[in-house]
Simulated scan of single mutants.
Amino acid sequence: MIHELTTNVTDLPLSFDQGGKLSGKPCGVDCPTCRKELQIGRIAGCQFAGCETCGGILIQQHVFATLIQHLRAKHTGASEIPKPMDARQLDVTRSCPACLAKMETYPYQGAGNSVIDACRECRLIWFESGELDCLVKAPGRR
């Protein structure tokens, strides 16, 4: 299931932020945004669950910390000043796809302006399409 993503991933045409690819293999949980079943994917050697409909990414907290450091360090393009965070995003409520508990919503404290939706119980983070990209391309120490 989502806590043990170990399936091999093939490169399919569907592309996510920072080159993530979906395998086409379901992971057993539904997207918290559009309710379609998430698929197992891979980005920079790390596994995630992704939605082919809305482009959202569900990732384990410990994987995210390593992934964001890696992606920011290898980013060679120009930095992009992030748009100011829309405070209305903090009012959005989502249920964790794994345990269905209400996810906590808060601003990301690192580089970039993004809202984090996290499940304290399952230790999963949800990113809407484009949010991970925003964090990677934000100015600041790499």
Rank of each mutant, 00 (worst) to 15 (best):
C99W: 10
C31E: 12
G77T: 07
I116R: 01
L71R: 01
R120V: 11
A73W: 07
E128L: 07
C134E: 14
E37L: 14
R123M: 14
G140F: 04
D117G: 03
L132W: 00
R72H: 03
D133W: 12
T105Y: 00
H75G: 05
C134V: 12
C51V: 06
Q60C: 07
P32W: 07
P26A: 13
G45H: 06
C122G: 13
T10S: 15
V63T: 10
V9F: 09
K102P: 12
P32L: 03
P13C: 12
C99N: 03
V63A: 06
I2Y: 08
I59Q: 01
R120A: 14
T7D: 14
G140M: 08
A49W: 08
G24I: 03
P97W: 07
V92I: 05
S95V: 02
V136K: 00
P82E: 09
E104L: 09
F127R: 01
Q89W: 00
D17G: 07
Q89I: 00
F127A: 04
P107D: 00
C46H: 14
S129E: 13
G20C: 12
I125N: 04
A44Y: 04
P32D: 06
D30Y: 03
T66W: 11
Q109C: 05
A78N: 10
V29W: 08
G112S: 00
K102A: 15
V92N: 03
D133T: 09
D17S: 13
C51A: 11
N8I: 10
L58H: 09
G110P: 00
K83P: 14
T105G: 02
N113E: 07
P82W: 03
Q18Y: 11
K83M: 14
G56W: 04
I40M: 06
S114M: 00
E104H: 06
P13H: 15
S15I: 15
N8V: 10
D17F: 14
T33L: 10
P13T: 06
Q18T: 09
G77L: 09
A118V: 00
R42V: 13
C51I: 03
F127G: 02
G45T: 03
Y106E: 04
I43N: 06
P32Y: 10
G28E: 11
Q60S: 10
A87S: 09
I116S: 01
E80N: 05
K25A: 14
L22V: 12
V136C: 00
S23T: 05
H62M: 07
R123I: 06
G110L: 00
L100C: 11
T93K: 15
L58E: 08
D117P: 02
F16Q: 10
V63L: 07
R35A: 15
